[in-house]
């Protein structure tokens, strides 16, 4: 597998390149760690490689058992079949895509913004109720969501949110994971910076937007990834019934569920659904960079 060797070489080069070379490193240590990373990486990336290859396999290769990892005679038939099926769809594909993009965009922005706003005071100040709120957030992460589904549905229907996007967006924006993640990063922002900002006459909202958010960029980018991944894959659950409001992953799962004759199309669908989160992931991850370095303030 030449690609793997290429990656290992790149990793090693990066380790040794002057830009990243640091004190206290032994060559043997670098090498064995790279080797270790490579081996485990192979195991991890296997399904991804499998999904990519599967999408380009003709039917006879898909049904080989045990399956071959790499495609022998790549073809675009699966994608062509998919486009024919989608062309006949009752609701145009563009509508499904719009639904997903709308849900994912609004939901992700909401999750990051609302979670971070609440995380800031809880992380940096003590005031009446702050301890209780922090505790509730952690503990609620430990209560399993399956049994709350029923009360949740009743609340949604009382609020007339069934069959609207809000049934997906609002619970996700009020999700405790986001707040908990942001809180644990914002704790590290030096309080001296907040004091300095206050001296300059900044209110809490200005401090949140101008100081806290830029300094916890790595954290909210991570939250963007998690939230995006979750919302992108949502099928609307038991909350969205109207066909024209359904997200694209629902439409595609219906195509796949049509049976064994759709196996080829299904592999194309799997790849398509995966491409967007992967691209978002890579772009976001390369933006997870040091933000604290320039502060130069120690607690």
């Amino acid at each position: 597998m030449p690609s793997v060797i290429g990656v290992a070489a790149a990793v090693r080069k990066a380790y040794l390149s002057r830009k990243f070379k640091r004190r206290n490193r032994s060559i043997l240590g670098d090498f064995s760690l790279t080797f270790f990373l490579g081996v485990f990486g192979l195991f991890s990336v296997w399904p991804l490689v499998f999904i990519i290859n599967n999408a380009f396999k003709p039917l006879n290769e898909i049904f080989v058992f045990p399956p071959n990892l790499f495609v022998q005679n790549p073809t675009l038939t699966n994608f062509a079949d998919l486009s024919i099926i989608l062309g006949n769809s009752w609701i145009p594909l563009s509508r499904y895509i719009f639904n997903t993009v709308f849900l994912t965009a609004l939901g992700t922005v909401g999750t990051v913004l609302i979670g971070s706003m609440a995380a800031f005071p809880l992380a940096k100040y003590v005031f009446p109720g702050s301890r209780l709120m922090s505790k509730l957030v952690v503990y609620s992460l430990m209560f399993n969501g399956t049994v709350t589904a029923l009360p949740n549905y009743i609340i949604m229907s009382k609020l007339h949110m069934i069959d609207t996007y809000w049934a997906i967006i609002l619970p996700s924006a009020g999700g405790t994971l986001g707040l908990f993640l942001m809180q644990n990063f914002m704790v590290q922002v030096p309080s001296a910076l907040l004091e300095a900002a206050k001296m300059d006459g900044a209110g809490e909202f200005t401090i949140f937007w101008r100081v806290m958010m830029p300094l916890s960029k790595s954290a909210w980018i991570t939250l963007v990834i998690l939230s995006f991944q979750f919302l992108w894959g949502t099928t609307g659950g038991g909350f969205i019934y109207s066909e024209k409001l359904k997200p694209v992953s629902y439409a595609l799962s219906q195509i796949v569920n049509a049976g064994v004759a759709r196996t080829g199309v299904a592999s194309a669908v799997t790849l398509i659904m995966l491409v967007v989160p992967v691209v978002v992931f890579v772009i976001s991850q390369s933006n997870v960079i040091q933000t604290m370095a320039t502060t130069g303030i120690k607690e």
């Binding site: 990656v7 790149a10 990793v11 990066a14 380790y15 390149s17 830009k19 990243f20 640091r22 990373l37 485990f40 990486g41 991890s44 990336v45 296997w46 399904p47 991804l48 991944q229 995966l274 989160p277 992967v278 992931f281 890579v282 772009i283 991850q285 390369s286 933006n287 997870v288 960079i289």
Partner: peptide, 19 residues
Amino acid sequence: ELSPKIRAFMTLVFYAPSI
């Protein structure tokens, strides 16, 4: 310690089962 681009790629490799 990798550069952001390579690190993002390696992160994807390891995160692949979850994504």
